[in-house]
Computed example of a mutant assay.
Amino acid sequence: MKNQTAITEFILLGLSTDPQVQIFLFFLFLIIYGITILGNIVIILVIRGEATLHTPMFFFLNHLALVDICCSSVTVPKMLENLIGKQKTISRMGCIAQIFFFIHFACAEVYLLTAMAYDRYVAICDPLHYSTIMKKQMCRQLVGGSWVMGVFDALVNTLPLMDLNFCGLNIISHYTCELPAVLSSSCSEKFTNYVLLLAASSIFGLAPFLLTLLSYIYIIVAILKIQSAKGRSKAFSTCSSHVIVVCLFYLSAFFRYMKASSKSLTDLDRVVSIQYLILTPMLNPLIYSLKNKEIKTIIWKRVGRCR
């Protein structure tokens, strides 16, 4: 039992053991992280600094950008440190903290995406009552609820980790402390942990996804009823960026977490995890800025003033 509880740190195997590949990956992910931080900060500053963007849709987008900064900062800096460091380790409590904050921010993002889908549903399916439904108080409650649900999801999945034993095996075949990878490294009975993981994935992941899907079914039906081709095109354009972000995040995350009980972590699992852990926070501001005419116009105006 002493050997089982004596582990104070984990070794993260990462994506490659080749030093040259590690250097390449370091600069690649450093650039991605830089773009993530810069892109999301630009989105936040543009929304907060432009009075015309103080609407529910951009209020949610502002918080989504903040969540993406936090989510990326949970995993990427430590991964960059391990890529160039000799000791590729993380403390046990640091590992649990990383799992807690990633689940917290990821769950908050899921519910923010659901809130954004509901906002588009009201805007397209019930436009006459939009201003009365999507009031500031409602928007704040939806955002606050997203952060609170993230805390609940994180607590449900991380508190049971405190009692896990690792039998002297402190190697995690991943580049970060992701919950499925840590569970697969433990020698304890993990049935309860997997039940909690699947239950939490259903409550905090699948349920919001179904609400988002239902919202877009109603949205698509409403758009198809619009007689004007220009009106249909405008309605689709307001939703397309959100649909792309939802698909990128959910498809990769569901693939990884719904097969969490797999004993071995494959190369495909690591590649898929890169999508929702690292790439999605970078792509979100790019997708929204490229697909949204209002944001593009304001950014170009401000760039023009700086010249």
Score class of each variant (00 low, 15 high):
Lys86Cys: 03
Lys136Glu: 12
Ile90Pro: 00
Asn82Val: 06
Lys78Cys: 02
Phe102Asp: 03
Ile84Glu: 09
Val110Pro: 01
Gln137His: 12
Tyr130Asn: 03
Ile84Trp: 04
Tyr130Lys: 12
Pro127Tyr: 01
Ser91His: 11
Ser131Ile: 02
Ala108Ser: 15
Met93Ile: 08
Lys78Met: 11
His104Gly: 03
Asn82Pro: 04
Tyr111Lys: 01
Gly94Pro: 05
Lys135Thr: 14
Asp126Thr: 11
Cys107Pro: 05
Gly94Tyr: 01
Asp126Ile: 00
Lys78Asp: 06
Lys88Ile: 03
Lys86Met: 12
Tyr121Asn: 03
Cys95Ser: 11
Ile90Arg: 05
Ile84Leu: 14
Asp119Met: 10
Gly85Ala: 09
Tyr130Met: 06
Leu112Ala: 07
Glu81Gly: 04
Leu112Phe: 07
Ala123His: 09
Met79Tyr: 14
Pro77Gly: 12
Lys88Trp: 03
Gln87Lys: 12
Ala115Asp: 09
Tyr121Glu: 00
Ile124Thr: 06
Phe102Ala: 06
Ile99Ser: 02
Met79His: 09
Asp126His: 09
Tyr121Gly: 01
Lys136Pro: 11
Lys135Glu: 15
Ile103Trp: 11
Val110Tyr: 05
Arg120Glu: 02
His104Tyr: 15
Val110His: 06
Ser91Pro: 02
Ser91Phe: 05
Glu81Met: 13
Leu80Val: 10
Glu81Tyr: 09
Leu80Pro: 04
Cys95Val: 07
Ala106Gly: 07
Ile99Lys: 04
Thr89Trp: 03
Leu80Ala: 01
Tyr118Pro: 04
Gly94Gln: 02
Thr114Gly: 04
Glu81Phe: 11
Lys88Glu: 15
Ala106His: 07
Ala117Gly: 15
Ile96Pro: 02
Ala115Phe: 10
Tyr118Glu: 13
Thr89Asn: 12
Phe105Leu: 03
Ile90Glu: 00
Ala123Cys: 05
Ser131Trp: 07
Phe102Asn: 00
Lys78Thr: 11
Ala97Arg: 07
Cys107Asn: 14
Asp119Trp: 02
Ala97Ile: 01
Met79Glu: 06
Met79Gln: 11
Leu112Lys: 09
Asp119Thr: 13
Cys125His: 03
Ile124Leu: 14
Tyr111Ile: 00
Tyr130Asp: 07
Tyr121Met: 04
Phe101Lys: 02
Ala115Ile: 01
Ile124Val: 13
Pro77Val: 04
Val110Gln: 08
Leu112Asn: 06
Phe102Glu: 04
Gly85Cys: 07
His104Ser: 09
Phe100Cys: 09
